[in-house]
C-alpha cells in the first residue's frame, strides 16, 4: 500500500541544511508549514552582490550578478542585475528547487568563473563587457563547455530570464502589461513597436 503523503529523505537533508543556514527556529517554521511567506518573502535588494546569499557565497553572488547583467543588459529597460535577478535566483533555488538543481547552478557559476580565468587570466567581474559576452557565448557554443555543462548553464539562464520577466520592470516595462485586457480580440496587427504581452499572473 502506498502512503500518498510520504515525505522523502531528500527533504530531511534539506531541512537540516536550512537549519544550519537560517537557525533552527526558522527551519522549524518551514517544517510546520507556517510563516513561510513571512520568513521567506523575496523582495529585491540593491546590495545582494555584496553579501552572501542563501545558497551562493558573496563571491559567487558577485559573479552571478555580472552574469545577469551580461545576459540581459541595460537597454531601454533596466538590466537583470539592476532588478536583482541574482538575488532572486539565489532565493528561488532555495525555495522552489531541488538540491540537484541548486548544485547545477553553483557549477554553472563556477564554470563561468573558471573559463574567465583561463581565457583572460582574471576574474569574470574584472574583464570587460565584450570579454564577458565571449565567455558566455563560448559556453553556449560548447567551445569551452561540454554538452552537460552547457545544459547546466542553460538552466541557470532560464532562471535568470524567468526572474527578469516576472519582475515589475520585466512585466511593466520590458513587455506589454495588460492587467485588464477588456475582452479578447483574435487579430491585431503587429508593428515594429509591438511588444510581447507580459502580464500572465501565474507561472
Amino acid at each position: 500500500m502506498n502512503n500518498v503523503n510520504e515525505i522523502n529523505h531528500r527533504r530531511r537533508a534539506f531541512l537540516q541544511k536550512l537549519s544550519h543556514t537560517l537557525g533552527s527556529a526558522a527551519a522549524l517554521s518551514v517544517a510546520t508549514g507556517s510563516g513561510i511567506s513571512v520568513a521567506f518573502a523575496y523582495t529585491p535588494r540593491a546590495d545582494s552582490a555584496n553579501n552572501p546569499g542563501l545558497l551562493f557565497s558573496q563571491m559567487q553572488m558577485q559573479i552571478l550578478s555580472d552574469i545577469c547583467a551580461t545576459i540581459l543588459p541595460t537597454t531601454t529597460t533596466k538590466s537583470a542585475a539592476d532588478v536583482d535577478c541574482h538575488g532572486f535566483v539565489d532565493h528561488q533555488l532555495v525555495q522552489c528547487h531541488s538540491e540537484q538543481q541548486q548544485k547545477i547552478c553553483i557549477d554553472a557559476v563556477s564554470l563561468v568563473s573558471e573559463n574567465a580565468q583561463s581565457a583572460y587570466g582574471d576574474v569574470f567581474s574584472n574583464i570587460n563587457e565584450k570579454q564577458r559576452i565571449k565567455v558566455l557565448e563560448d559556453i553556449e557554443a560548447r567551445t569551452s563547455a561540454t554538452r552537460e555543462q552547457k545544459e547546466q548553464f542553460s538552466f541557470l539562464k532560464s532562471l535568470i530570464v524567468f526572474g527578469y520577466f516576472t519582475s515589475e520592470e520585466g512585466i511593466t516595462k520590458a513587455t506589454n502589461f495588460q492587467p485588464y485586457p477588456g475582452g479578447f480580440k483574435g487579430s491585431i496587427p503587429v508593428t515594429a513597436d509591438t511588444k510581447v504581452w507580459g502580464s500572465l499572473n501565474y507561472y
Partner: peptide
C-alpha cells in the same frame, strides 16, 4: 489581480510546502 512580482516566489509554491 495581484501581479507575479508581488508573490514571494513569483507565483511558484515553496518546494517544501508543496511536498508536505
Amino acid at each position: 489581480a495581484k501581479p507575479a512580482w508581488t508573490f514571494p516566489n513569483r507565483t511558484k509554491v515553496n518546494d517544501l510546502l508543496t511536498e508536505q
